Simulated assay, not measured.
Amino acid sequence: MHRATQTLQQEADRHRTLAIERDKLLQEIRRLPGFERFLLPKDFSQLRASAHSGPIVILNAAERRCDALIVLADVDHVIHVPLPHFTLKRAADHQILLKTFLRQAHAIRSDERYGEIITWDRGSWETFLAPLWNGIVKPVLDALAFSVRDLTLPRFTAHSLIEVSKQSPGDMSRIFWCPTGPFVFLPIHAAGFYDSQYSLPGHKVFDFAVSSYVPTLSILARSPTLHAVPNDDLRLLAVRQPPSDGLGQLPGVTPEIAYIKDVIRDSPSAHTTILESSLGTVEEVLGLMKEANWVHFACHGIQDGVDSGLCLADKRRLTLRDMLSLSRPHGGLAFLSACQTATGDEDLTDEAVHIAAAMLFAGYGGVVGTMWSISDRIAPVVARDAGSSGGSTRVA
């Protein structure tokens, strides 16, 4: 008994000695230039620096209430915006309703293949998107001092007051939505009134700003290794659906890659290298991704928790783990023309478990992703229009 007590005491003393040694090492490290906050949580001044390109709006849903927390680069506190007209139950109900709409959309696409003309129930979508505007977006815009009557930009930005009707996408303000819980699955970027009586600007979120999504604040932190890609050195990796992925053929892939090549051909860039994946194996694609500063996937995507991925040759996936293991320079664009690349996991709603987030963590400065399945007929058109507009539709 005495020996056991002595052994426990020795073990406790050893842990205490190691803890003291660790603290001393950390103090030494933090005295080094640039390591002052090594292994310390970021303070708010560091977090707010992530809002350098526009407001970051964190959406939180709890049993008792829903709230928006706004972070601005030049405001030294978080702006708290209560969302009294939107509840956790309402968010969950909207998520269920969205699933119903998407199932209907899938059925419509199946019927269209057989030549049947199916019309959308626009009224249902308007009923779905209007509460997102009233309950979430409008309170946030009001807090940012957007004027629905005057259509002016927020007072917190350095932009001049410009009429929205005269703005181009490059001039408009940016809002970065950071949703949590059931908010992750809601299309906040499409919130608004779509009835014909609301045809004038001022009733939809995209009348005021370009919306993007971020999984965390730190993903927007400026990297000390970030360098702008020179205009004369664009290296594009185009990954088309490989025939051995074991899934249904996507006829839209061929015209989609052709559209991308047309955009590149018309680009003012003096030097463009197109790295096309010939076999589409995981190893080949990973190797080429290290060379490319723009990657475009036109293939099948599957949302399956930590096993989510892009379907490549030999029935294998480019998984989240593969993407996170990439050692590549920061910056560039990942265009994911595949299904469910930004869907998220219902069992891990507070975790960024999807392909688009993995690409951001891998170092890409912008990612285009899909929140649900995308039609093979529409995907090439989106790729063409996004490319011709200079990538201004990027969301992540």
Rank of each mutant, 00 (worst) to 15 (best):
Q46D: 05
F44W: 11
E283H: 10
E28Y: 03
E36N: 09
L324E: 14
L250Q: 03
F156P: 07
R90F: 06
T119A: 11
L102F: 05
L59F: 01
V214S: 02
F128G: 01
K42N: 12
A4R: 14
L237F: 06
K290Y: 07
P82A: 04
I29V: 10
L59S: 00
L220K: 05
C311V: 08
R48F: 07
S173Q: 11
A386L: 11
W294Q: 13
S199M: 13
E28G: 11
L72V: 01
E11Q: 13
G287I: 04
S199Q: 14
N293M: 06
G280W: 00
L97K: 14
G369E: 00
R265L: 14
R149M: 15
E351N: 11
P182I: 00
K315R: 15
T119H: 14
P169S: 07
L286K: 10
V229Y: 14
G331L: 06
A92I: 06
I56D: 04
A158D: 09
A356K: 01
G202M: 07
A362H: 04
S327R: 15
L47K: 07
L97R: 15
H80M: 06
L326V: 04
I175E: 05
R64L: 05
E163T: 11
F361K: 13
K315W: 10
S173C: 10
L40Y: 04
C311A: 13
